[in-house]
Design a protein around this nucleic acid. Structure first.
Lengths: 137, 137
DNA sequence: AGTGAAATCACCCCTTCGGGTGACGCATCG
DNA sequence: CGATGCGTCACCCGAAGGGGTGATTTCACT
């Protein structure tokens, strides 16, 4: 992180210096201004892409966005989604039941429906599929 | 994609034009050359970051990199990792056993050890933790 | 007013999982 | 040589999960 910033600053300073050097040492403008602008622009675009990857690509700051379309398509209800979320956190049926104030039977019913809609037959598979479909983080 | 490229080209052309405009219309260089370089650099750095995100950020091409350090720290063996991977795919003990040609008892033993090392007591939690620790994709 | 989906709960039966214990062969390391 | 860790397998038991059926209430839509 710190290294990235320092490298970037050095690259920036170096480029500025290089431009000055070329312009003042040879005292000629071999290329029109547009060309310089283009070169600098391309150079720093590349640097920007690289810096962007280093700075934000590594740390996964990406916020979770639920795939509402898939949710609708599969016909998963609110309550079922709620159960699915707790499922994804690794809770047992009993824990889920306690957390949403229903009996384990109800949780089982919701899960059965979820398994049908997700076309799976185990909770682990349900979690995996829900995760792949971006239904849960 | 196409829109991104076009927008980018427009931004680039616009910036070049703006520079020309400022320089030739007022016929004065209110700022030293370094400042211009800096402005252009910063501008296109930002544009580069933005373009980078649009072009490659959307498609998650990010390849999975196993967290070897965590693996070593937790003392998870090769065989255990193999079981963990199949676990993460939502397989049952029987399926895992068939896939690696051992008995379900062996799978259970591996899992028991994994639960201890990952400090969990359910397969779903194990999958979640392994996923969080980047032990499995 | 009637239909249907969602949500709730119950009971049964069977499979799967998890925890505990014990055992054996094999390799590596001191 | 003995200790340690890994991989393998077995048996037991209780808890958890999964499949099936059936039932009630509530609420929205028609």
């Amino acid at each position: 992180m710190k290294k990235t910033i320092i490298s970037y600053a050095l690259a920036l300073a170096g480029s500025a210096w290089l431009l000055q050097y070329v312009q003042y040492t040879y005292n000629v403008r071999v290329l029109p201004t547009e060309a310089y602008v283009l070169i600098i622009a391309l150079l720093f675009t590349a640097l920007g892409i690289w810096a962007g990857r280093r700075l934000s690509g590594g740390a996964v700051t990406e916020t979770f966005r639920r795939n509402q379309k898939a949710l609708d398509y599969l016909g998963i209800s609110n309550r079922e989604l709620q159960v699915l979320e707790l499922l994804g956190k690794g809770h047992s049926n009993q824990e889920i039941a306690d957390r949403i104030f229903v009996s384990t039977n109800t949780v089982k019913t919701h899960l059965t429906h979820l398994y049908e809609k997700l076309e799976v037959n185990r909770r682990t598979q349900a979690v995996k599929k829900a995760h792949d479909l971006q239904l849960i983080p």
